[in-house]
Amino acid sequence: MTIEAAAPASMAPDAAARPLVHPGWVRVTHWVNALAMLMMIGSGWQIYDASPLFDFVFSPQIALGNWLAGALLWHFAAMWLLVVNGIVYVALGLASGRFRAKLFPIRPREVLRDFVAALRGKLSHDDLSVYNAVQKLLYAGVLLAGLVIVLTGISIWKPVQFWWLTAFFGGYDTARYVHFAAMAAIVAFVFVHVVLALIVPKSLRAMIVGR
């Protein structure tokens, strides 16, 4: 891909010597997904405000779309980007064996061990191509949350045509709460994800240039 070809030239001389951590398709789908999620969550907050589920609303300053119709236009346009990009990512992740190699197995004992190590600041980041158990759990978890948010989204969008899916999530009203909960889980993940990327900046570099 052009990104891989162009990257070494703009970097330090030793950059090409570092092993490739993220292939091009991972980096492209990662950033497209980041953009799509930003639009989906921002517009979703504006839509939420039209009929809040809880005793609070999101400030229009951090929401997207200005008013309900504008937010709906954003939400139902960005959904295509999110879903098409997500399908490409999951298909390549499964076909390439990357999911199986990187995310599994997830052992509770290792998660606990790595979690304690992370809190003590003793977790190694020397090899970015190997995920620790906490990372595995979080990345697998956010994939699951992504699946839930798409399926509950379809349940709310098409509660008649896909009534069986809506029924699976406990009916129309319950599906709205599950949709919200999945959003909250993803936002919490993004917060932790971004903070950790700041603490280990070379991980951010690897997601941009691959190495």
Binding site: A34, L35, L38, M39, G42, Q61, I62, A63, L64, V190, V194, V195, A197, L198, P201, L204
Partner: peptide, 17 residues
């Protein structure tokens, strides 16, 4: 530097909206 490096998502959210 840390701030500039990692502002990615948060900054984009603020600008987008």
């Amino acid at each position: 530097r840390l701030f500039l490096r990692g502002i990615v998502s948060v900054g984009a959210l603020a600008t987008l909206t």
